[in-house]
Structures are given as C-alpha cells and as structure tokens.
C-alpha cells in the first residue's frame, strides 16, 4: 500500500489477556487510508479480539492503538467520541430489536446530535437505498432475513459517517445463499475508498477485495502481504496448513 497515505489505524505491541489467557501477545500493524485489510486465521487465533480492541469493545491490556487520530489506549481519550467514526459490523448483526429499520438507522445520529431528525432520516434513506433495503424501512429486525439484517447493520454503521469500518465475521451467521448480497455491499464500500478491517473466512472475498491479507495465529500476526502472496504463495508453514484446510 502506498506509504504516503495517512495511517488510519496504528497498532503497536497490542496485548490482550482474559485473566490467565493471553489472547493477543504482540500485535503490530499500520493500516492506511482507503486500505482493505482482511484478517484470516483459525478460530481462537485472536482475530476477533484484535478487531474488538480497535474500538475498545475489549479493554486493552497493553500497547498502543491509535484509530483515526484518537489514541484509544490513553485513559483521557473520550472513547465515545473515538467510536463515532469507527463503524462496526457484527457476526450476529445486533440490530436493535426494539426499533424498526429506520429507528436503527436514526438512533445514533440523532441521540449524539450529529443530525436533526429530518437530516438523519434523509441520510438513512440514502444509505438504505445503497444497500438495497429502501423497501423495508418500517420492518422490525425479526421480520428480516439474515442477509437483510446484515445489510441494514452495515448501513446503520455508515450513518455515523465513519472513517474506518470493522467487520467481525459478517457472513459467518448467514445462510449460504445470503452471503453474496452482503459481500457485494462490502465490495462496493471498498471500491468507494472506505478503510476496512475485515475478519472473515471468505477466502474468495479476501483474494478479490483485500489490499492486504493478514494471517493470525495464537495471538501473533504470522504473515502478511498482498492476497496473492499470502493466499497463493504462503511462506509460513502454519499459513499453508490453515489454507489447505479452508480452500
């Protein structure tokens, strides 16, 4: 990736323990503006935890994480302010069950005084159209399919006008026939220049969309590089071993 671009996510010696268990041991990575980084790795390798440390959904044990100019490992940083510009998409969608689609879209922008009700609604409608959900604005989450929920969840994150988007296995809980519609939305987002970190098992997506692929295992980044380097010509034994199982 071009080194002259701005660093959007800077991670240095990141450590994360859950009690005795060290999940992240020493993670170092810089992610540049507009870059799409796909994180691969076996389950338990710490890739989801890494992602959740980037917006501090997990308390960070050690190291430095700077996201979009906010040093979120600094106690004095207003974490809520920092999170406003870091969107997150979850494996289980996590749409607010007590609100319809429009309510989901408008809650954060209006509650955080980023927009008036009318502005928020206008933005919401535009974004919902972008993800192909404009016909379901008054549906409740329980009335939507998994793929539809995830597309709304992506739009909801975009409603805060984020500079970085984090995807935590966004297609793992979907029925196979719905994976494509969600990946298509993500691919379009990448094309539009969004800085993205994607934890996924979709090797095809990684190969096609990623600027960089990171392979994690056992709390470390084992290997990183372009998709063709990491996926097609892995150097590390463990990467080869993992890929042979999933490809």
């Amino acid at each position: 990736m071009a080194e002259n671009k701005e660093v959007k996510v800077h991670v240095e010696h990141l450590k994360k323990d859950f009690g005795e268990l060290q999940v992240l041991k020493d993670i170092n990575i810089d992610i540049y503006e507009g870059e799409v980084v796909v994180v691969l790795g076996p389950s338990g390798s710490g890739k989801s935890t890494f992602l959740r440390c980037v917006n501090r959904l997990e308390d960070i044990t050690g190291g430095t994480v700077v996201v979009d100019g906010f040093d979120i490992t600094d106690k004095h940083t207003d974490i809520n302010k920092a999170r406003e510009h870091v969107g997150m998409v979850f494996q289980h969608f996590n749409l607010f069950n007590n609100m319809d689609v429009l309510g989901n879209m408008m809650l954060a922008p209006t509650e955080l005084k980023k927009a008036t009700k009318d502005e928020a609604k206008e933005t919401a409608l535009k974004l919902l159209e972008r993800v192909g959900m404009q016909d379901k604005i008054h549906a409740f989450p329980s009335q939507l399919s998994g793929g539809q929920k995830q597309r709304v969840a992506i739009a909801r994150a975009l409603a805060m006008n984020p500079n970085v988007m984090l995807f935590d296995e966004p297609t793992s809980a979907l029925d196979p026939e719905m994976v494509g519609e969600v990946l298509a939305v993500m691919q379009q987002l990448a094309k539009d220049g969004m800085t993205m970190i994607v934890v996924t098992h979709e090797i095809g997506f990684a190969r096609e969309v990623a600027d960089r692929v990171v392979f994690m295992e056992n709390g470390y980044i084992i290997e990183e590089g372009s998709p063709s380097e990491v996926i097609d010509n892995p150097k590390e034994e463990r990467t080869k071993d993992f890929l042979s199982k999933v490809l």
Partner: peptide, 13 residues
Amino acid sequence: DKGQMEAARSLGL
C-alpha cells in the same frame, strides 16, 4: 443479548 449493548456502544452512544 450482550450484542445489543455492544452495537450501541460501537456507534458512539
């Protein structure tokens, strides 16, 4: 579900 709180917090609430 814990995810509800996490999703809300991730938006900056």
